[in-house]
Design a protein around this nucleic acid. Structure first.
Lengths: 337, 337
DNA sequence: ATTTGACGACCTCCGCCGGAC
DNA sequence: TGTCCGGCGGAGGTCGTCAAA
């Protein structure tokens, strides 16, 4: 079943069928309808390879997913996949370790699969223009920006929450509940990543509310939002015997690990210690206690990432930098002091 | 840079270059070397679209993922993606709703992307041969079989745990801990799916240990392993005032929802009620209490699915039906009576 | 003026035939 | 006779161009 068969059945030329299929205007309504009718009944599907060939491109959009244990990205990937499908492209995902180089991975993927565009799910925040010359197609940084790097805004697009502000709001929520001795468990304070941004937001909130920062209340776990490291980190904090009434973690899964550590040490949440996080996974609503967390708008982030990418790919639209709002979802893991 | 350019530079014909590139034997060693040398220095990469076109195939392997909220599939997809990458193919995922028709989705995907093979992540258990004629490439059913259908074993491959046995073992574990009044929360007892299989395993265990089945201890939630429905189901059970000391759920996430419902009604787990599940997600180790669950070998299942598919695709190997073992991971959610 | 047909180019592979040694 | 290589045509869909109705 090729375009020729359709043309023959309809009694028109191959050109005409092609024009109909590609929505060219210069086809009469009657012919157009007949062709579409026949395409439907014959169940004809255009040969994508031939299409790609003549257009000297593929319909592939790469998605580089960095970090394996990240449930947040897993949810996002579904939305992105659906949007890419809807637009008639093919999503080509590649999963890499959290310490791998996503730019290199993207560049390889681009050449291997002749990508039309790229979406990065998670990555570093400090690229230089030189590093990014490897990427030759439009790309969108999803869930992170390049705020520590020297990349010009016009050279890339990004979709994320305001990480600094979100951590600020989370901390602020704890403070407004009366907490003053607030601990934080972060992968790193200075790795020029999402972790550093959120940590800075935490510090800003303390400062604005006149709370002195106590370095004993800070745990750096290293790694990249892993649950075992977080569990261990909180255990260290507890062994120090330092006093605190609330704990900030930077993701939902690490919050669950943190709560576990607290509970295993006989501290009940939130009575003995409140816990707040950032992400808003579905499963967090069934944690015990229900997690209080800043919900990232996953659906919207995925949808907008694809929209921006397609707009740049197809219409040469300028880059965009979208900051979406994370909203507090009050659970049972935070209580007033 | 096309095959013509290479031919011109080498002073040979296009046919000869093509023969070299495709490792045909009838080319002299000297010519072969010169062509390969030139391909290397010129950085020539064959046009994949043209190649796919003429071979009327692509390097795409489709993965139809059924059910969105399933964290287990999210983990599996990563393993499958890596294995497909490693083998030099391209993974093309498609996410569909849990009530959508995965065969139709697979057939559409197959034609759209010219798939070489298909992996189904989750699906029905009762296909007939007629339904599967839509699929024209080798495929592997991952995490389920077709035991309720009339498909012949030789017509498809499958990789899964033994669902009946796994639910049996889970129930057995509760019984050996002294439990006799065991409730079960299942999506359905008779939907000819994974749910029914596991439910049957539950009933078999009760029977073998001489425990009378009490229909009051059974909750059907409908749907497909959703947390809200499970939560509601357990609430209904509790409202009935029926007595039970243990609860079986069929997945980790539903177990978390069930524990939440129990705890919200003032029943502590495991003191007032033990809970056991099937899946073995990472996050379940940080639930409160840590979930006791039958761990599915995710990595191995993903790896084996790809291996079997490739073997069939490339070597015409016969179909395989692999039953892997789910192992008990003892947590804190089950206690002796 | 609008609609339609015909055609070549794009790129690669493969089978086939023919020529050369 | 066997080995090596050249050349041709077909398969696929799109798109611009030109011609024709």
């Amino acid at each position: 079943m090729t375009i020729k068969d359709i043309a023959k059945v309809c009694g028109v030329s191959v050109s005409t069928v092609s024009r109909v299929l590609n929505k060219h205007p210069d086809v009469s309504e009657t012919v157009r309808r007949r062709v579409l009718q026949e395409v439907e009944t014959q169940g004809y599907i255009p040969n994508n390879s031939a299409r790609d060939l003549v257009r000297s491109r593929s319909d592939a959009i790469g998605v580089v997913v960095r970090g394996t244990g990240n449930l947040f990205f897993a949810e996002m990937l579904k939305t992105i996949g659906r949007e890419i499908d809807r637009a008639g492209y093919t999503m080509v995902p590649r999963f890499i370790d959290s310490d791998a180089d996503e730019v290199k991975a993207g560049a390889i993927l681009e050449r291997e699969k002749k990508l039309q565009g790229l979406i990065f799910l998670g990555g570093r925040f400090d690229y230089t223009p030189a590093e990014l010359t490897l990427i030759g197609v439009p790309y969108v940084c999803c869930s992170y920006t390049n705020c520590f790097g020297s990349l010009e805004e016009k050279d890339y697009s990004s979709v994320s929450i305001d990480d600094h502000l979100t951590a600020y709001r989370a901390t602020e929520h704890l403070i407004r509940c009366g907490h003053r001795r607030i601990a934080a468990v972060v992968p790193s304070c200075s790795d020029r990543s999402i972790s550093e941004l959120r940590y800075d937001g935490f510090r800003s909130a303390l400062r604005d509310y006149g709370i002195a920062f106590d370095s004993n209340l800070l745990v750096e776990t290293g790694g990249c939002f892993e649950m075992p490291e977080t569990y261990e980190g909180v255990c260290r904090l507890l062994r120090c015997g330092v006093d605190f009434t609330a704990l900030l973690t930077l993701s939902d899964t690490t919050a669950m690990a943190a709560m576990k550590a607290l509970q295993d040490h006989g501290r009940s949440v939130p009575q003995d210690c409140s816990v707040i996080a950032i992400d808003g996974l579905n499963v967090s609503e069934y944690a015990n206690p229900t997690l209080t967390t800043m919900v990232q708008p996953v659906e919207e982030m995925g949808r907008e990432s694809v929209r921006i990418l397609l707009d740049t790919m197809e219409n040469g639209a300028p880059t965009e930098h979208l900051r979406l709002e994370a909203k507090l979802r009050a659970g049972q893991s935070v209580c007033d002091l």
